[in-house]
Design a protein around this nucleic acid. Structure first.
Length: 592
DNA sequence: GCCGTTTTCGGCCCGACTGTTTTCAGTCG
């Protein structure tokens, strides 16, 4: 049973409890939701955590939920959950994915109209709405009826919360809005917040904060943005629109003297904020987006301490300022209190890129690059790199004999040798190659050809559906070749497209650490692979990582910043990242 | 149901916005 399925059951149990008696079960509901959040963010399957007896180490999972999950994984059912869920009609649950539907509203409609078929519940409600029957219910009206119809229609069109943008797309959308907002003379400062500021690999909504003394005028300007489909809501302090791209944009406004608290609040994450507020309460302080108030004082504006900057806000709690990428409640609050936060790697620390596909005619097994080696070297110089590694895909084994492959790579070596002479003392050039790990774990080119290289970047490009143990064995065998130096895009995931294969990460990390192999953080925005949560595990184990762009043209060499975001979210410092080192250290590591 | 730098019992983050209401319930972040 997958984590996704398990989360769904836990959330359904929470929903069923709020329908039964929200007050009575208030804290159980929060507990089930928290457990679901944690499992959702875990990159290890619950079944594996159970086998390794690590499930209870997950925050929010105690003895009770652990035993329920054990029963679920073993039998597919939990008697305790079934007894909770059996009182709630099954047609309620699909509705919970629709914006604006919570447990109460969903249950109310299903119960009033006796909607018993979860398969047809959406069309049943649409029919009732069009007949005007929803508006006749007590507590509902014409407006809520039309809101419900629109929400179901938008759900059908895929405009749901689950549908997330990759970072560059979200960034471009946000940049346009920030530029537009800056045109208003009432806007003093603009900042992008939420998961985009935390640099998560995918982003749901765009959150933007503005410092201004004229929120009404800022909202007037915002709601006349040309790329707007409709206004979702508009109050005194915040305003939400649906952009024509189908994305929700939330705008919050605060006066400049209180902007720091607003930034902190809407940067999140939710888990970070909840933990931070619990910590503050233990010191007698209550936090909100307006500032900090002593517990026991009136909820009155005059009692609130205000902060222009986030730094001042965290300082008032006797903590260091926490980089947004770390704000996921993974220990950053404890570290900030002890003044023990890591010194995270920055873009300007990067001295080179090892995963570069040029247009050199290598007749590759997969796609080739668009620009010559020289063009890419010139681009590397513009980026102030000290070294660059070329790693085209190895020549196709189906189209060439081993002899032919050796000849192609010999010519390439000679060409690279000429480039080395030309760029001597300017930039160091490494002769690498991206080599497939074949299903049996062997590498796609022969040892004789491998010897022509400084090192190999090995990766999986076929037979993705092997089971975890077999795939782990395959990768370890591939990596064990003495010339294999880097494991590229290690999970094989493509964001929003495929989840990638499973590996036994403890085995992989231990092997890499013991044998001086580096694991790649691939900066390609659809990959961002190794994922941030696994980066943190690798960093904790002391595995060496390398951030590469996997560029196929000049422009793509600037994608390094996305890999940096992943590394920072995984708590990586310069010490953890190979390509922050000098080329002398690289030479030593690669054993030239 | 979870959790512990005052606690293994007694707490559990904090607020905005909307629709349908005359003071609030539901949803969302």
């Amino acid at each position: 049973m997958s984590n996704v399925e398990i989360c769904r059951v836990l959330r359904n149990v929470a929903a069923a409890l709020s329908i039964k008696n929200e007050k009575k079960f208030r804290f159980q509901i929060i507990a089930y939701q928290k457990a679901a959040d944690e499992i959702e963010n875990s990159n290890v399957e619950v079944g594996d955590l159970l086998r390794e007896k690590k499930l209870e180490k997950l925050p929010g999972v105690g003895a009770s939920i652990r035993s329920h999950l054990e029963e679920m994984v073993n039998t597919g059912h939990v008697k305790h959950f079934d007894s909770i869920l059996e009182d709630v009609p099954s047609a309620v649950f699909p509705l919970l994915d629709v914006t604006g539907f919570g447990p109460k509203k969903a249950f109310r409609l299903v119960n009033e109209f006796k909607l018993n078929n979860p398969e047809t519940v959406f069309s049943d409600i649409q029919k009732l709405g069009k007949e005007g029957r929803i508006a006749t219910l007590e507590g509902f009206g014409e407006k809520s009826q039309s809101d419900i119809l629109r929400a179901i229609e938008e759900y059908g069109l895929g405009k749901t919360k689950g549908n997330r943008m990759v970072l560059p797309y979200a960034g471009q959308l946000a940049d346009k809005l920030v530029d537009y907002l800056n045109k208003s003379k009432n806007v003093i400062r603009v900042s992008v917040l939420g998961s985009l500021r935390r640099r998560r690999s995918t982003v749901g909504d765009i959150d933007i904060a503005v410092a201004s003394n004229e929120p009404g005028k800022v909202f007037d300007h915002f709601t006349t943005y040309p790329g707007i489909e409709r206004i979702i809501e508009r109050g005194d302090k915040s305003c939400s629109i649906l952009a024509t791209s189908g994305r929700q944009v939330d705008l919050m406004v605060a006066p400049p003297e209180g902007f720091g608290a607003l930034l902190q609040h809407f940067t999140g994450s939710k888990a970070h904020n909840i933990h931070l507020r619990e910590h503050a309460l233990s010191k007698g302080l209550s936090l909100s987006e307006y500032g900090i108030r002593k517990v026991g004082t009136k909820k009155d504006e005059s009692q609130i301490m205000k902060f222009k900057t986030e730094e001042e806000f965290y300082e008032a709690l006797d903590m260091d300022w926490i980089p947004p990428e770390l704000r996921e409640d993974n220990g950053e609050i404890e570290a900030a209190i002890k003044h023990d936060l890591p010194n995270l790697v920055r873009l300007e620390d990067i001295k080179g890129d090892f995963h570069i596909h040029s247009s050199y005619p290598i007749e590759p097994s997969h796609d080739m690059g668009q620009n010559s080696m020289e063009e890419m070297i010139e681009q590397a110089l513009k980026l102030k790199y000290k070294y660059l590694g070329f790693s085209e895909h190895s020549p196709s084994i189906s189209k060439h004999s081993n002899r032919k492959i050796y000849e192609i790579l010999t010519l390439r070596s000679k060409y690279i040798e000429r480039l080395r002479l030309k760029y001597k003392n300017i930039i160091r050039i490494y002769s690498l190659l991206e080599i497939d790990i074949l299903p049996d774990g062997s590498l796609a080119i022969e040892d004789e050809a491998m010897d022509l290289l400084d090192g190999g970047i090995v990766s999986i490009h076929s037979n993705f559906d092997m089971d975890k143990d077999k795939m782990t064995e395959r990768v370890l065998k591939g990596l064990s070749h003495p010339k294999a130096k880097i494991l590229a895009h290690p999970t094989g995931r493509l964001l929003n497209q495929r989840s990638g294969y499973e590996l036994d990460w403890d085995l992989i990390f231990n092997f890499c650490k013991e044998n001086k192999k580096a694991i790649e953080i691939n900066a390609w925005p659809l990959r961002l692979d190794l994922p941030d949560t696994l980066v943190k595990r690798a960093v904790d184990k002391g595995v060496i990582l390398v951030i590469d762009t996997d560029s196929h043209d000049l422009k793509q060499m600037e994608m390094m910043k996305y890999g940096i975001s992943v590394a920072r979210r995984g708590w990586a410092t310069c010490n953890d990242i190979l390509n922050t080192k000098s080329y002398n250290e690289i030479d030593e590591w690669i054993e030239i």
